[in-house]
Design a binder for these strands. Structure first.
Lengths: 166, 166
DNA sequence: ACAATCTGGTCTCTTCATGCAACTGTATTT
DNA sequence: AAATACAGTTGCATGAAGAGACCAGATTGT
């Protein structure tokens, strides 16, 4: 059985758990592109129906999508992004920009994220300090937060000893 | 068989392909936390050895990690993030912040991404215009880029017609 | 009115990935 | 020299994923 991350005291793991699996982010990508109906997702992704059914249900359960009746009798559903789902735009953009940089390369981007008004591509996502300064990976460190549990704290302790070893 | 995205003309799909699967991002999370050896990852993730072996190999093949001989005869390996791997910090942070916001909630974060010097948590990742203005999801649109292929272009055309239907 | 088609699934079957546990061959430590 | 750590490999049982057929209700075309 696939390992579940339901109980882990880690936002990364829990976010992954909510998203479900690889397909899911592509479904969300399609939702951002404008897909709303079952058939939209199906044709865009060439995904089999049973898997799509399961994924959509998973996303609805995790409040990333909601269903809205589009036909008068409920046989036409529309799937829409919830606020929680829309907030994944940053994540999808991060993924897209990484692929742009390292797979396709500058000037070869298949799709650009643009500002609606001007049509100009958005800037590169950066990790910034509160005051707006950009921070590189080497300027960052991870620390236990207010919600850290025993296990997490012990992990950080162990890291302090990490350089003892050869 | 799991679907492969090797040939897709989409940075999101290709990035997902390079990463491999869910485990992989947790491996990368551990690498950012300081894990370097096989046993580090194994104990932190409680992952089975054969799967870990496969994932690490996948990441090395996709140039996210490299191996460095730590023992004199190559039996002690260290896995290190390549530049390409370090550039995933934004992605991991996006995922972590999403989980912080929607799973744990403010004040309950298990782990914080902080600036090394000040120890203060970094700001929230935002999609920004070139000039630095923050953009919300509704201010964004996707457009075909210079690397768009026929299929991608046709997808965007179809989107123009999307509102015709009921 | 009636057939054809669309929509959003469910069901079955096969294949593959996962997790577990045992085993292996070097290194290092004592 | 023996024990233990390291970084895997191998074999096996199980469950999940994917392909494709099938289906009921709604809608559309003629």
């Amino acid at each position: 059985m696939r390992r579940r991350f339901d109980e882990e005291n880690c936002s990364v793991a829990r976010a992954l758990e909510a998203l479900g699996d690889w397909w899911t982010l592509l479904i969300i990508r399609e939702a951002f592109l404008g897909a709303r109906r079952f058939a939209d997702f199906e044709s865009a992704l060439s995904i089999s129906k049973n898997v799509l059914t399961k994924r959509l249900r998973h996303l609805v359960e995790h409040d990333v999508l909601t269903t809205v009746d589009a036909g008068r009798f409920g046989s036409r559903l529309e799937y829409q992004l919830t606020p929680r789902g829309k907030d994944l735009m940053v994540l999808v953009t991060a993924l897209r920009q990484w692929g742009d940089r390292w797979v396709f390369g500058p000037g070869q981007e298949p799709v650009l994220v643009c500002e609606r008004g001007s049509g100009r591509p958005v800037g590169r996502l950066r990790v910034q300090a509160e005051d707006g300064r950009s921070l590189a990976a080497r300027d960052l460190e991870l620390r236990p937060g207010p919600g850290a549990d025993e296990t997490t704290l012990r992990r950080f302790e162990a890291l302090g000893r990490v350089d003892r070893r050869r």
